[in-house]
Structures are given as C-alpha cells and as structure tokens.
Amino acid sequence: MITENNLIEVRDLKKSFGKTEVLKGIDAEIKKGEVVVIIGPSGSGKSTFLRTLNLLEDPTGGKIYFEGVDITDPKTDINLHRQKMGMVFQQFNLFPHMTVMKNMTIAPVKLKKATKKEAEARAMTLLKRVGLDDKAEAYPSQLSGGQKQRAAIVRALCMQPDVMLFDEPTSALDPEMVGEVLDVIKALANDGMTMAVVTHEMGFAREVADRVLFIDQGIIMEQGTPEEVFGNPKSPRLKDFLSKVL
C-alpha cells in the first residue's frame, strides 16, 4: 500500500549480478523531508540499493514506488522520474568537456525545465551558496576534489529534484576536503531536502540522519534513529561493524 507522505517506497527489492544475489529482498521507505543514511560493510549491497532507486541498476525483482508511481513498471518513463531524483556519485562524474556552468545548465535547458538564462541564474545562485561562483567558467579539471563534488551536488540541485541520492559522496576525497562537502550536504538537510546517503562517515550519519539503515548481506539488518543504531545496536553484525568503524 502506498502511504501519502512516503516519497519512495521499496517492496521486496531484489538484485542479482549473474549468479550473485546482492539484494535479497529489501523493504524500505523514505518520507518527504527525511534524511536516511545507509551504512554497512563494503560489498553489503548498500550502493547497489541506492543505485536501484533511480534504476541505474535494474532490479531483478520487487517494486519501487516514487511519488506513488511504480517506476519498475517497464511502461513508466524513467527519464521523467529521474529529473526529480538528483544523484551524486563517488567519482563526481562532472562532464570534463564542459565548463562548470555548462555542467549545471545542460540538463535543465535540454529538458526544457528552464530557459538558458533562468538556468544560468539559478546555477549561479546555487554555486554562490557552495562558494563556487568564481569557478563558473572553469573546467572540471581545474577544480580540487572537494570543489568538484560541491559542483556535482549543485548540478543535481539545478534540476530542482524532490529527493537527492548520495552514493558515498566523500569516499574519493582527500581527508582535508571531506568536511567542505559534508557541510554542503548538511546545509541541504537543514533546508528540508529529502535524501538518501550512503556513507562511511559515521559522525556525519549520527549528526544529520533522521533514520539510519544498516544493510548487510543484501538485507536491512537493522534500522532506527541514530541514537538507537549507534547507541544501542541489537544485531551482532551491527555491533561487529560499529566496533570496526567507530
């Protein structure tokens, strides 16, 4: 059943790569305005889970509802729904042959969400907010890792998404640049943006998460508020995981 305030609802989601079953039936929901942080050991399926939410990975089974629409239905135009689901990647994936500004405006202009002028104005406002307004005419190769990731976040925001998906946004960064990117994500969370974040930054998870999902061996082993998950872990797997990362 679809509940009104669930932005994303996942039912019995399964994903296999060849014979390897990575997701073994996941049920989850993300409410409007909620910040869900997904943690788990590497190879647990947490990135795959995030990437199925906008169908970058095709699920092998189960259903995903986004704003009440079953996006796993082949008849659904996934491109339309992806416009409302921003995604930020571990490797930034800025388009290297375009200036930062062009990176920001290509999708909104091409998809007729805004005129070139409007898109540029919005991009400039957002770039200013993350301290990159002076880099609008630079190429991605001229930016540091932290700047690249901040630009990538703005690129996703330029589509005015209803939800943001972060796939280990700080894992490819030098340690001294992690903070500046996390600050941008925190500010977004405080603005009320709905988001799902896969991360290894436990301090960050504790600080911004409304709910933490612990994924291991392809299922959600445990979930709850940060206090519950970090303060009072129940499953031995989670206890074991936390003892290694904290």
Partner: peptide
Amino acid sequence: GQMEAGRSLGLNYPSTMIKIILPQ
C-alpha cells in the same frame, strides 16, 4: 560514470550519447 551522470539527470540515452559521450 559519464553515462550514469547524464541519465541520472533525466537525459535520455540518445541525448546523453550525443551531448556527453560522443564529444569526449
């Protein structure tokens, strides 16, 4: 990742191919 980034923004396969992949 370039194709994925294009698709994640809502661009369809041909647009991503023409605007993002082929120029590079």
